[in-house]
Amino acid sequence: MGALIWLSSYPKSGNTWLRTFLHHLLINPPAPLPPDSLGRFTLGDNHRIWYDKAAGTSTIGFEEERISALRPRAQALMTGAFPDSVFVKTHSMVGQRHGAPLINADVTAGAIHVVRDPRDVVISAADHYGLTIDQMVAQMADPNAVIGGNANQVQTWLGDWSSHVTSWTGRAGPGLLAVRYEDMEQKPLKTFGAIAAFLGLRPPKDRLERAIRFSSFKVLQNQESQHGFGERSRHSARFFRVGKSGQWPGVLTAEQVRLIETRHADVMKRFGYR
């Protein structure tokens, strides 16, 4: 049994890329692994099975308040999934719902949070959720935004983009590493090396480089084409769509850019996006 290490991000900000890198770094396979094998390596904090275990019964049909009350217990049960530290993917913000924490600090060892330029996030997220860009701009500004909620997943509380990022990164400390998507792309050896070091790992350079290479966007696209990926949205032709930073100047209108930059100016400036 081990404490939880959160792999957190706003949706479509590089969470799957991070998980894929860690998967290959720790397993060190001779060839790239299919994307769906991630489920054997990391848990998802919204998977209903943990809430069913916490409740001792099916939670389908439970109102939000009952789910919120179960969340700390469900996350505590996740610590038993593996004997050592347990990596858990989340798109949740940090905060409370109905008096219960969204993230159970009592069973948490640390967190890696991936941040991406919201002007690029909005393009990728709109495609993933089947929304127009205008609709996604509005969702990223909505403090009450939620995603999910079906037979297999409970709802995830996003909040607005700025609050989401700040909730994870507002307090610096030894248990948190914040990384930028753009640095993962443009400075991979330095950025992924820092991720490994944060986890107390000192892999040989060739092993680190292989994990970076096996989790590259081109490889992920090829793997998805060959094997599929269960996390692909029904709204999208593929999960790994473009994967490049700086798409927004040729896609967003001037008004869409203005709305994003005005609403999220402070956090964008903090992370070097303004």
Rank of each mutant, 00 (worst) to 15 (best):
T169H: 02
R258C: 11
I103Y: 00
H128T: 08
D266H: 13
G130I: 06
P32V: 02
H24I: 02
L177K: 02
Q75L: 04
V165M: 07
A100D: 10
A111M: 09
T42Q: 12
G148S: 09
D52A: 09
K187H: 14
R263I: 03
A81T: 07
Q96F: 14
G148E: 09
G170K: 06
E255V: 07
E64G: 11
S215K: 08
A141E: 12
P101Y: 03
D160Y: 01
E231I: 06
V154Y: 00
R241V: 04
V146M: 14
P83D: 13
R207C: 10
V257A: 13
Q75F: 04
P203V: 00
R263F: 12
H264L: 03
K218N: 13
T132S: 15
A100F: 13
L18Q: 03
A178R: 12
R274A: 15
K218H: 13
L189Q: 15
H24P: 02
T108L: 15
E63C: 11
A54W: 08
A109C: 08
P30E: 14
H24R: 06
A151T: 12
P32A: 01
T20F: 04
R207M: 12
I147D: 00
A172V: 04
N222K: 12
N15W: 01
L177C: 03
E255N: 15
G173T: 10
A254R: 12
H227C: 08
I195W: 02
T253Y: 06
T132A: 10
L70F: 00
V251G: 05
T20Q: 13
A138D: 12
K53E: 14
L177M: 08
P118V: 05
G61E: 05
G149D: 05
W6G: 02
K190E: 15
L177H: 03
Q247P: 07
V179A: 05
T132L: 04
T156G: 13
K53W: 11
E209F: 00
G2D: 08
I133C: 08
G228V: 09
L38E: 11
S9N: 10
A265G: 11
D127E: 14
T108W: 07
V121D: 09
A55E: 08
G243K: 05
Q75M: 09
F240R: 03
D45S: 14
G193H: 00
A211E: 02
M136I: 03
D45A: 13
E255H: 10
K89A: 03
R19G: 13
L199F: 06
N222L: 11
N152D: 12
H235M: 09
T253G: 15
A54T: 09
W161R: 06
G193W: 02
R73L: 14
S162W: 09
V154W: 09
L77F: 10
L7G: 01
Q221I: 00
F62A: 00
R213N: 12
R119D: 03
V219Y: 04
E209Y: 04
D45C: 12
W17Y: 05
T79H: 07
Y10I: 05
E65A: 15
K218W: 08
P29I: 02
I212T: 06
K89G: 04
F271Q: 08
P204C: 01
R97T: 07
D206Q: 13
R171T: 15
M1E: 15
D36M: 02
H91Q: 10
T262R: 14
N104T: 12
K190T: 14
M1Q: 13
A81Q: 12
E209K: 12
W168V: 00
Q256W: 04
D117K: 07
A211Y: 02
I133Y: 07
Q223Y: 08
R274V: 14
